[in-house]
Design a protein around this nucleic acid. Structure first.
Length: 418
RNA sequence: GGAGAGGUGGCCGAGCUGGUUUAAGGCGUACGCCUGCUAAGCGUAUGUAGGGGAAACUCUACCGAGGGUUCGAAUCCCUCCUUCUCCGCCA
């Protein structure tokens, strides 16, 4: 949600931002409705004032036993006029807030314009592995432990079924990553894996992503598409003290995505699935410090890949590739040696006050003064399937076995998976 | 799933037989005073949002959310959300 004052003062800026994000919005229609609303509001407040005065007069007269019929009649008449104006303004309010929910966040000034092709590679880390044999994709290397046909029988296509070492590897990674975050001072959250409409709206999955989410109609719940939703919503409608900031959280959740219309392209094996596991990092930050917190989250996430020895690169997303709610976003991509391409394994975004406004998340400044919206940030730390792809494909040996990085070998109890 | 009780300003909490409460009181917080001592006491201020005014100030809305009744609703009625207690069911 954007500040109404900003919409009034700089409608052009908002319109340009939406265009940069390829969102269609009609700011003129909003401005029109907003000014109609304010005119109406003045009239309504005036009528309410009159009615309040009449009510008080009635009250005083009745108490002293006088007749108040005249005031009551006037008040009734005022009330009739009021209720017609009030129903008008309610309509306008609905229209305004519907429109506002569809206004995307404004990209930061340092975000490059344009589509995905304008993403900027900020840096690359690690050596791309070379093999003296033909490298295989993960679905071949994992034939015995990753069985999509079995998952299909259970839940339908594009779900994951792991068995044996793959199942254990996933569990071990989740636990290893959580420990890594906790050690850096984050608090672990275990939250619900379903969320209601209000929560989805606060973090801005709704209204835009409705069709990409699984919904349980009977109970009006959505399966969460990312841990961002429940973990950020932990602070929806909450007021923090400045001293409470920053709030640093992490948590494991599965993520459910319908991926409607994405069949056929790049979705073989583990590349794109309906349910995947993820450890999420969430940060609530003082507005003055969200910029550096953003970098910090990025480096923290990348640190895990360095411990695992996985080559990665950092992208600064261009405006057209930014999500609806993000002001700025870094993607981390890791190398897939069996498919010879980069895979997105983490998106780390600064939403500034966009989500905080929607979810009413504020803090009170230490020296007193007006309550302020906090800044929210989050990032994957990390998403499991693609991490597993990389570990398996990059660690493959000539005989089809997988050599584990030492950080994991210790936890898995073996150095080679076969 | 059934029955019952709640949801009031940052927190606690009164009001809930409709109108001098446009929310008492307490805690917390801020400033000041007093006290010579890591304490206490006293005074004043202190919800959020929007509008008007140079300013003192003033108007409007908000008592979980939304509707309704009424001249007038925190207070009455309805729907929903949510918390707790008991019963049932269940890993």
């Amino acid at each position: 949600m954007l500040d109404r004052k900003l919409l009034r003062k700089e409608p052009l800026k908002v319109a340009e931002a939406a265009k940069a994000k390829n969102e269609k919005i009609d700011i003129d229609r909003w401005l029109e409705a907003d000014s109609a609303r304010r005119t109406l509001m003045l009239q309504i407040e005036e009528l309410r004032k009159i009615r309040n005065q009449l009510s008080k007069a009635v009250s005083v007269k009745k108490r002293s036993g006088e007749n108040a019929d005249e005031e009551m009649a006037q008040s009734r008449e005022t009330g009739t006029r009021l209720s017609s104006l009030e129903s008008n303004i309610a309509d306008i309010d609905n229209r305004l807030s519907e429109m506002e929910k569809g206004f995307p966040n404004i990209p930061d000034p340092d975000v490059p314009l344009g589509g995905e092709e304008n993403n900027v590679v900020l840096r690359t880390w690690g050596e791309i592995p070379e093999f003296d044999f033909q490298a295989k994709p993960h679905w071949e290397l994992m034939e015995n432990v990753f069985q999509p046909e079995a998952a299909g029988r259970i839940a339908g296509s594009n779900f994951i079924l792991f068995r044996g070492w793959a199942a254990k590897l996933q569990r071990t990674l989740i636990s290893w990553m959580l420990d890594y975050h906790i050690e850096s001072g984050m608090e672990e959250i275990w939250a619900p894996f379903v969320a209601k409409k209000e929560s989805m709206t606060a973090t801005a999955q709704l209204p835009k992503m409705e069709d990409d989410m699984y919904k349980i109609d009977r109970d009006n719940l959505y399966l969460i598409p990312t841990g961002e939703v429940p973990v950020t919503n932990l602070y929806r409608d909450q007021l923090l003290e400045e001293a409470d900031l920053p709030v640093r959280l992490c948590g494991y959740t599965p993520c459910f995505r319908r991926e409607a219309g994405s069949y056929g392209k790049d979705n073989r094996g583990l590349n794109r699935v309906h349910q995947f596991e993820k450890v999420e990092m969430v940060r609530l930050e003082h507005p003055d410090r969200s910029e550096e917190a953003h970098e910090e989250l990025l480096n923290h996430a990348a640190g895990m890949l360095e411990l695992l020895g996985i080559p990665y690169r950092i992208l600064l997303l261009a405006s057209g590739d930014l999500s609806f709610a993000a002001a700025k976003c870094f993607d981390i991509e890791i190398w897939s040696a069996g498919q010879n391409k980069w895979l997105e394994v983490s998106s780390i975004a600064n939403f500034r006050e966009f989500q905080a406004r929607r979810g009413n998340m504020r803090y009170r400044p230490a020296g007193g003064g007006k309550q302020q919206f906090i800044h929210t940030l989050n990032g994957s730390g990390l998403a499991l399937p693609r991490l597993i792809i990389s570990l398996v494909e990059n660690g493959q040996q000539a005989d089809g076995s997988i050599k584990l990085p030492s950080a994991l070998a210790e936890r898995m109890g073996v150095e080679v998976l076969r």
